[in-house]
Design a protein around this nucleic acid. Structure first.
Lengths: 345, 345
DNA sequence: CAGCGTGGTGAGAGCGCTCTCGCGTGCCGA
DNA sequence: TCGGCACGCGAGAGCGCTCTCACCACGCTG
């Protein structure tokens, strides 16, 4: 633990380079409209002095912070038990870094923490926010929307706020679910069950919808509600076996639950995929590849989702983000999913 | 995506409350030495105007940012494949939030990114840094040390820098490994093998040392070097079986590798724990509880490590962090581990 | 009653930067 | 040759805050 030394200011650089503060500022910020000689001289002085601009002073006048908040609103520890969040963060970080933005991480710690986060966001410390709010009844999205700060959501916010346009990035949960169920049907399976995720999350609801799209008049007993956890998957699988012993396929709303289901199936003496085919969702490698048999699942490009969120936000801030042709006002994006065939179906 | 409205300034609040800027400032920052009447009046004005201090302006004069950088230097995606990192982050976040500090996340993106991070840290944007640098040859710790910014490391940095005191928080990797191996020995096992982690990381090296502490004159063939991945664990286990078919216990340096080893053992027709007992390290629940049989492992309190890192750093900054009696200069902490008995040993 | 603290308040000087504005220089066409 | 017009550069005014310092009332002591 060492202490910070006094840092050189613009003034100091200017003095050393024999120019004015303004010129140094110009050079530091791109150097347009300054003769090459001077640019060179200033650069040298900057190097020699080890000058680094004071971001606080800069923000004070520009009202920009080049910082984006990433808000993770998750009451439970669950997000942390899977790499989902970390991968998104990674994508976000890459994109932000590429555009010289910092990432300020805000994790909510329980119920009353929303206010703190909202206050922070409203406080103008950051230029925008990337928000992960997975629950339908979460008050956070609305609070943030009210804070009047540019925001992009991770996953469709299941939230019936006012008509202001909400920008989000999501996977095609419904389509992916359809693909999974169709694949099972294509395998000749007829009793295709579904283990849902926590239905207060849009992803779970959408996957259920996808299942229903294909299984239009499915026996309701084929649907077991769970919560995205392995234990929940086990419980649901047991229920299903009890209710419908003839079940010959299971589509679980995520890999974790699928792994739980697999265990129960094995315990019940069923062979996978011979007796019962199983498909998960997410393609969490550490889980999906390690199950026995390896899990067939629906992959979503999680890192890309993160990257896209950041890109949309920065574009909305109309900064140096890539333009890619069209409109200035970014709109939501739904990324495709792909079915990854492994051993379980 | 909405735009930010013009925010009220100290001046505005002062005008409304009929006092001077200085007084408002005093109230906002604790309100000592101001008559209760005025405090009340100012508070009211603040509320009515929805005043939030401009952090940039404040930092400009105080030279404090109330922000801490968390640097994760991990070339591979590995950190992201496990909840380790996320849990530490959570602990860190809790502690920082409790002391009104923001968390700025810096992820390195490959080799040349160190310079960027070092520059940022040296730039005085944050008050301190929490650094995760897992590799022995990582230049980052030294760069950061040179940046002259208060730093606490996550895990013992395996780095032979100069004699300046380095503060870190680590698990008792060596002790935990000893416990694991002793437990296996206590089970009557004699051919106890070790699957190492990536030995360029201190945690792996320390766990190996712990193994050696107990198995003082172990047959070198009982040690297989791997890399913390499930695939590496599989490979190492195959090697071990080939070299020493009589192996009756395995201590893997983490749960992921243990799960790989488990699979290979099962594939080779061995029963766990009857024929071969297996112990992992980390106690990553999603992995350890889902293996077949559930994994006996060495638990470390990851979230607590994170919390402790933050606490040490804040204390070093000598701010409102808890004092807990003693010295102002914080020193490294090594947290104890505990053996968690499940089915595999 | 003069003198002197003492606690509450306001005035004002910056913190380090950006950005507008205006001035000086060199170069063009008339 | 001279007026104009770029263009390059510097002076200076803030951005919103903190913090020192001087000021003013008190109430106290000598």
């Amino acid at each position: 633990m060492t202490d910070t030394a006094p840092r050189p200011t613009l003034e100091a650089v200017a003095a050393r380079a024999g120019v004015s503060r303004a010129t140094v500022s110009r050079v530091v910020n791109g150097g347009d409209g300054v003769r090459d000689v001077l640019v060179e001289r200033v650069r040298k002085a900057v190097d020699e002095l080890g000058y680094v601009p004071n971001q606080a002073a800069r923000s004070l006048v520009t009202r920009r912070h080049d910082a984006i908040a990433v808000v993770v609103a998750e009451p439970e520890t669950r997000v942390f038990a899977d790499p989902f969040f970390a991968l998104q963060l990674r994508g976000i970080s890459k994109e932000l870094t590429a555009h010289d933005n910092q990432l300020v991480l805000l994790l909510t710690e329980g119920r009353d923490d929303h206010a703190r986060v909202a206050r922070y966001l409203a406080g103008g410390h950051v230029d925008g926010a990337l928000v992960f709010s997975l629950h339908l009844d979460d008050p956070l999205p609305e609070l943030i929307q009210r804070a009047g700060i540019p925001t992009v959501f991770g996953g469709r916010p299941g939230w019936s706020g006012d008509r202001r346009e909400v920008v989000y990035v999501d996977s095609d949960n419904r389509g992916g679910a359809r693909d999974a169920v169709r694949h099972l049907a294509g395998l000749g399976r007829t009793w295709i069950a579904h283990i849902t995720g926590a239905l207060d999350q849009t992803s779970a609801a959408d996957r259920l919808d996808g299942y229903r799209d294909v299984m239009v008049d499915a026996d309701p007993r084929l649907i077991a509600e769970a919560d995205f956890t392995p234990a929940g998957g086990e419980r649901a699988m047991r229920e299903l076996l009890e209710r419908c012993p003839d079940v010959d396929a299971v589509f679980a709303a995520n890999d974790l639950m699928a792994s739980g289901a697999l265990r129960v199936l094995r315990g019940s003496g069923r062979r996978v995929p011979d007796d019962v085919a199983v498909i998960g969702f997410d393609d969490m490698r550490p889980v999906a590849e390690q199950t026995d048999p390896p899990l067939t699942t629906v992959r979503q490009d999680i890192e890309e989702m993160g990257r896209l969120m950041a890109r949309l936000l920065l574009r909305g801030l109309d900064r140096d983000a890539p333009r890619e042709g069209v409109g200035a006002t970014p709109s939501s994006v739904v990324l495709p999913t792909t079915l990854v065939r492994r051993g379980s179906a």
